[in-house]
């Protein structure tokens, strides 16, 4: 195994007095897509928020390319080459599509115009709707915008929380294809997904989280074939 680009090592964290992560170990290598699955409340979103600096780890460490980043604020984590697409409220509803993208690029040196243009090429829908307020977009369009906003920095590592939530199956499939395409261009992806089978299908490896810990981890294909995992976590 090569050195991981992102590593969570014995991470504990939570909200106020409530502990959610109970010693979480996750690693992501530079060319991988890794999928986190698990029941509601398992701590999947909390894991991404802690990795990204929105929450400070209570103990354990978060390392990016071997350097400790636990507790580094998100606005600095972005500048280290990490992007984040939250599970909910992941676009600026009162801003236009073009403005959402420009905001995604505030940490870039120099202008954002060329990068916005590249993303318009990749997602023509966004160009078409560029002057519309983001709140007018449909669920699937919003997910594309949220994804594109996070890509404005051209991150090395992208954390995505439930990209297919609330989408019709074929729209979800398109989002997964976009995720795989971004990975092909060299971005490592750590993705949380409720549609565990669809998520694992595009992933290299998977982790099953339960009660703030890793219950299982394996190659994605093995996880899907494991009868116990299937029975307990993938809905049979």
């Amino acid at each position: 195994m090569s050195d991981p680009v992102l590593e969570l090592d014995g991470v504990e964290s939570g909200y106020g007095d409530v502990q959610v992560l109970n010693g979480l170990d996750i690693r992501l290598e530079a060319d991988e897509i890794v999928c986190l699955v698990g029941p509601n409340g398992a701590g999947k979103s909390t894991a991404l928020k802690t990795a990204f600096g929105l929450l400070e780890p209570w103990s354990g460490s978060v390392r990016l390319r071997g350097e400790e980043i636990g507790g580094t604020p998100p606005e600095d984590v972005v500048r280290l080459g990490v992007g984040f697409v939250p599970q909910t409220e992941n676009v600026f509803g009162s801003l236009t599509i073009a403005e959402n993208l420009k905001i995604g690029g505030v940490s870039r040196d120099g202008g954002v115009g060329a990068r916005v243009e590249e993303l318009y090429e990749r997602f023509p829908l966004l160009r078409e709707k560029r002057t519309a307020k983001a709140r007018t977009l449909s669920g699937g369009q919003r997910q594309v915008l949220a994804f594109a906003r996070a890509l404005m920095t051209d991150p090395d590592v992208l954390l995505i929380d439930e990209p297919s939530a609330g989408l019709a199956p074929n729209t979800a499939q398109e989002v997964f294809e976009d995720v795989a395409a971004v990975n092909d261009l060299g971005t490592a992806i750590l993705m949380v997904e409720q549609n565990a089978r669809q998520g694992l299908a595009i992933s290299d490896r998977g982790y099953v989280l339960d009660q703030g810990r890793v219950a299982y981890h394996d190659d994605a294909a093995e996880l899907m074939d494991d009868p116990e995992v299937a029975e307990l976590y993938l809905g049979g």
Binding site: L54, P74, E89, V91, F92, S94, G105
Partner: peptide, 12 residues
């Protein structure tokens, strides 16, 4: 609009 998302976008 959304302070956490603003930070996640790199806004100081």
């Amino acid at each position: 609009d959304n302070r956490d998302l603003a930070r996640a976008s790199g806004i100081r």
